[in-house]
Design a protein around this nucleic acid. Structure first.
Length: 667
DNA sequence: GTTGGCTCGATTTTT
DNA sequence: TCGAGCCAAC
């Protein structure tokens, strides 16, 4: 079982299960293989698979590792390893213990944009934004709230450290957050952070805590460099009794500090657990030597320094290339050319990826690829759950699973003719005062004639007279709101197709509330993602933000916009830790490549991405590409053929001399 | 109160 | 380009 592991990996896989272990695993050192092997080894040592808990960063990672561990063990293992993201495991636990936590049994989960909207309502109600002084916007407020909760530090500290420009609003902000917390509780709503908080509370409780922790013999945590203080508290508590805790991570790949993650949780692990075993994986199996040397050189500049230096194990390989292009359009052309050329050489599209710092960096390339009929799937960036029509439908589904979910009712009611924010609010208040079911008391006096019929239809779908399963329920709701969506977004049939796909996905669930929670916690990354990859046997390219590409690898990787302002992002430059993190983001991008690494950088950029004017500025190459790093890459200038060049026009020009004559003008 | 038309401004990364 | 916020007409 351990034969195909190297010495380092075997040591990590078979480290004592009675003491905490921390595995410092560099990029491409076979981390997944090692975790998989450890799971299998633990089972082989006598632990039951379903008494192992695997916490990963994405569900994809959890599924893959559990699957591979089962393959490794073969048929003899009974049961399955319990795996998932922190949030999905938290969700399941909190639902089981809802009553004990004083929560509505059918609580719904707020996605981040709903949370922002609710904060915005509170902000309005309290009159914080009276226009006389600057008060943070809703998304900033949510960031501050989340940072405070996840670092478990007082608001005033958080403000002075990360948001100094609004520390004079501390008082009123505290009031907003107090009200926000109370409102969530009153309405049976939990945001993402609440899931972790309640989980921490459960394991922290004397009796329930013992009950939950006794459920597992060993806990494994992947990507530990990206955990925050609450997640540390949870995992430490889970392992307090049996001491079976394995954490795996790479501080050079810590790229989530904006979410209150702190890589020092990884690096300080041995001081928190003095009996911890420390294991290192430093032999890289992924990238060819030239690519690894480039990324190693970048890693040497990391702050705080990371002392590991990855050893190459793959011989040969060609050097990375830096392609300078005239502008962003030239970059799109050059990258599309390269992708097609590699494909011609026999490299499947699915073995290639395009990585970008922010989602819109690939806009032009996407157009270019569409023009050339190159299929691709894009990950990261704006979720399709955030589009207006999906939010409308989701609001209806949420209202159907939790009658108290006022924000959803607020949105849903406004889809009806003649109901705007004021009436929606009044209707909700009237029904809440009457202390009756919103659905049963309809219509109230405030409901205008124009909204009665459509409204009744929607409500009948939301509260069907007989018991229905999630799939059928979602179909009912969709059917009822379809005319409203049609009226609101005219000549757009693709929106309804999206919703039909979504409704179809509900059939995999019994309870609607489970479907809705699942959607919010691990929603589709793109429309079409619900049905899985577009055509499973089809070959397609991946375009991804660097963040979403973490943990993945491809034969060829194309990194776009390697210019200052993009990589590093100019949003991150206000302090030096931001710059340090951007360096790691770049490092993550480079280390995704197995044998071909192409970076591209346009010389000029247009101020308006899609504007008609031609104001542009000149870019500077990314500051991360200093001379020592560039030693390991070949810089080439992309040749952009001019369609007016004689060669492009076909025949070679006649050699006759052509002159101009202006003499007639001077008479 | 609602709705549609208008201008203006801002734009990371994600469970 | 897209959304948020403002204004005027119904």
């Amino acid at each position: 079982m351990l034969d195909d592991l190297n010495e380092e990996q075997r040591g990590a896989a078979t480290a004592s299960m009675h003491r905490p272990a921390v595995v410092l695993a560099g990029a491409g050192t076979g981390k997944t293989t090692t975790v998989t092997a450890r799971l299998a080894w633990l089972v082989d040592e006598g632990l039951a698979p379903d008494r192992l808990l695997l916490l990963t960063f994405t569900r994809r990672a959890a599924r893959e590792m559990v699957h591979r561990a089962r393959q490794r063990l073969g048929p003899r293992s009974g049961g399955t390893v319990v795996g998932g993201t922190f949030h999905s495991v938290a969700h399941r636990l909190v639902r089981f213990h809802a009553e004990q936590l004083g929560l509505h049994e059918s609580f719904t989960i707020l996605d981040p944009s709903d949370a922002a909207d609710l904060v915005d309502v509170v902000r309005e109600d309290l009159g914080c934004a009276d226009g006389t002084r600057r008060f943070p916007r809703k998304t900033t407020l949510v960031d501050i709230y989340s940072r405070t909760v996840n670092t478990q530090r007082p608001l005033s500290d958080v403000l002075t450290t990360w948001f100094p420009w609004c520390s004079d609003c501390c008082e009123s902000m505290a009031e907003v957050f107090r009200t926000y917390v109370a409102e969530k509780r009153r309405l049976g709503l939990l945001d993402f952070d609440d899931l972790l908080l309640y989980w921490a509370a459960l394991v922290g409780d004397d009796r329930t805590g013992r009950h939950i922790t006794s459920r597992f013999d060993h806990v494994l945590v992947d990507e530990y460099q990206d955990v925050n203080a609450i997640q540390v508290a949870i995992t430490d508590a889970l392992a307090a009794q049996h001491r079976g805790l394995t954490v795996v991570g790479d501080d050079m790949q810590a790229i989530y500090s904006f979410r209150a993650a702190d890589p020092s949780h990884l690096t300080d692990f041995p001081s928190r657990h003095p009996d911890a075993q420390v294991l290192r994986l430093e032999c890289n199996y992924r990238s060819t030597r030239p690519i690894l040397e480039l990324s190693n050189t970048l890693a040497e500049r990391a702050r705080p320094p990371v002392r590991r230096r990855l050893r190459a194990s793959r011989p040969g390989g060609c050097r990375a290339e830096l392609v300078r292009c005239r502008d962003e359009a030239g970059e799109a052309t050059a990258v599309a050319d390269a992708i097609v050329a590699l494909h011609e050489e026999g490299l499947a599209l699915r073995e290639q990826a395009v990585l970008v710092r922010t989602a819109h960096h690939s806009d032009l390339l996407e157009l270019e690829l569409a023009r050339r009929h190159v299929p691709f799937v894009k990950y990261g960036g704006l979720r399709y759950l955030d589009t207006a029509h999906v939010k409308d439908f989701l609001a209806a589904l949420r209202a159907a699973s939790n009658v108290h979910d006022t924000p959803s009712w607020f949105r849903l009611l406004q889809l009806l003719d003649g109901i705007g924010p004021a009436r929606a609010r009044r209707i909700i208040d009237e029904l809440a005062c009457a202390d009756v079911n919103l659905a049963d008391a309809w219509p109230t006096p405030s409901v205008p004639e124009s909204a009665r019929e459509a409204g009744s239809r929607v409500l009948r779908a939301i509260r069907p007279s007989h018991e229905v399963r999630a799939g059928a329920h979602a179909e009912l709701v969709l059917h009822a709101i379809e005319p409203l969506i049609r009226a609101r977004y005219p000549h757009d049939t693709s929106r309804l197709d999206d919703l039909r796909e979504l409704a179809a996905a509900a059939s995999g669930f019994v309870q609607l509330v489970d479907f809705v929670s699942d959607l919010v916690l691990d929603g589709p990354r793109s429309s079409g993602d619900l049905a899985g990859p577009p055509h499973l046997d089809d070959d397609y390219l991946v375009i991804s933000t660097i963040h979403s590409a973490k943990g993945l690898e491809w034969d060829a990787v194309h990194v776009l916009r390697v210019t200052d302002g993009a990589i590093p992002s100019d949003m991150a430059l206000s302090d030096s830790t931001g710059l340090d993190e951007e360096r790691r983001v770049f490092y993550v991008a480079l280390t995704r490549a197995r044998r071909v690494l192409r970076m591209s950088a346009p010389d000029r950029y247009y101020h308006r991405p899609n504007g008609r004017d031609d104001a542009y500025g000149y870019t500077k190459l990314s500051r991360f590409l200093d001379a020592a790093v560039l030693e390991h890459a070949d810089t080439i200038r992309s040749a952009e053929p001019d369609p007016l060049a004689p060669a492009a026009l076909g025949a070679s020009p006649p050699s006759r001399r052509v002159e101009i004559d202006l003499d007639a003008l001077w008479r």
